[in-house]
Nucleic acid binder design. Structure first.
Ligand code: SF4
Ligand code: SF4
Lengths: 137, 137
DNA sequence: TTATAATACTACCTATGAGTAGTATATATG
DNA sequence: CATATATACTACTCATAGGTAGTATTATAA
């Protein structure tokens, strides 16, 4: 389940913002910190606003801020909103949809890892990130 | 590290062939069993021949057969040959090349899973597959 | 030696994710 | 109200993975 660039950006942006929530971030500022294409980030921010994680404030002194508390946002939610999580519900290896009563060749090699991975994404909240250990956003 | 369709096909094909090695498989036969696009499979078979896993026999009564023993083929080798394994050596999440002394936000959530995953691909040989349990190719 | 049945090759087509350009809209402040 | 500084929107471009079409080549067997 290699994440799309878009998911990667979404995670990086929201994790960066979650380090100091309750603050207004402009697109300009985020672009500078995260080194993501300006136009692409702006478009993504609009999507993330529509998804209800943040809200946008237009006009002078505008920007983006959390509208949902980082404690209520799972990594899963973020990925799900930008690229859809069927990719994870199905087979993370990219194989065809799986019934698991009808296992393909990779299944038994894969299933434990899948469980761990799902756990990470479904149980980690933005507020759970260990910000002290993060050296790069 | 969602695998590309091409890796998926390569694994499925070679695993299918490894169930009964020492046999000649025609493209026609593989297409029928694995339900992969005919032309695409053929092209892939040529690649797999050039990579040294199988050899092709042209002409009437031709087909493909292992030239390297399934005992000497790691899943890693297959993926590496069709899509390159940097994707796995780098960050499986799709993040930029990582130094790990300079961890990004996902690192500590991810690193153990990455280890397990690498282990599976780097230590499983085609001959290790548990063919009794595989119900789908 | 000719017909047949297989693989190999070259060149396209198509859909999608990523990124870019330009314009429109909103709002705080003087 | 005018201006400066934000975000929102629409419509492109570009690269790549996946898939397709048609032709060329190879080798067996009658
Ligand atoms: S059987 Fe397991 S490995 Fe195979 S496609 Fe389903 S989840 Fe993936
Ligand atoms: S620090 Fe860890 S999670 Fe981040 S890019 Fe490197 S390997 Fe991936």
């Amino acid at each position: 389940m290699k994440l799309s660039k878009t998911s990667e950006y979404a995670l990086r942006i929201l994790i960066y913002m979650a380090k100091v929530p309750d603050q207004l971030y402009t697109a300009k500022q985020l672009v500078k910190e995260l080194k993501v294409s300006d136009k692409y980030l702006r478009r993504l921010m609009t999507d993330l606003s529509k998804s209800g994680f943040i809200r946008s404030i237009q006009g002078r002194d505008g920007g983006y801020t959390f509208i949902k508390s980082p404690e209520d946002i799972l990594l899963y939610d973020i990925i799900d909103s930008v690229e859809g999580m069927e990719k994870m519900n199905g087979c993370l290896l990219g194989f065809e949809k799986c019934s698991c009563t009808n296992p393909c060749a990779m299944h038994y090699l894969w299933v434990d890892i899948r469980t761990d991975l799902n756990k990470v994404f479904r149980e980690t909240r933005l507020s759970d990130m260990d910000f002290n250990k993060i050296l790069r956003y």
